[in-house]
């Protein structure tokens, strides 16, 4: 059970949060101009990294804000937390 440092509320139990998958997958601005392949890439294909992953979390039972986390998925160690729209930190 992680202890997550919500950038708006501070450290809270993992139970207060919901994970939202890989971060920095931007929704295409012009979906209709994409091929089926390109659209599938956005919709379904994931890096699913073992190691340092950038991912989205939501403080769903708290401030309800979305933010990003850098986590090593091989041992679940959280390396950094940063707000949406900010540049990912170098880890």
């Amino acid at each position: 059970m992680f202890l997550i440092n919500c950038p708006f509320c501070g450290e809270r139990e993992q139970s207060e949060f919901k994970a939202g998958g890989e971060a920095h997958i931007v929704r295409p601005k012009q979906p209709t101009e994409l091929s089926d392949d390109e659209w599938a890439e956005y919709l379904f294909m994931r890096k699913n990294i073992k190691g340092i992953q950038f991912e989205r979390w939501n403080h769903i039972h708290g401030c309800r804000k979305w933010f990003n986390i850098v986590r090593d998925t091989s041992n679940d160690e959280i390396k950094a937390v940063y707000k949406m729209g900010k540049k990912p930190p170098l880890v």
């Binding site: 992680f2 890989e22 992953q53 991912e55 986590r71 998925t73 091989s74 041992n75 679940d76």
Partner: peptide, 14 residues
């Protein structure tokens, strides 16, 4: 399952 990606072979107690 938990809702996050993990290769640690550990899940949350909840």
């Amino acid at each position: 399952t938990d809702d996050y990606v993990s290769y640690s072979q550990k899940g949350s107690h909840d």
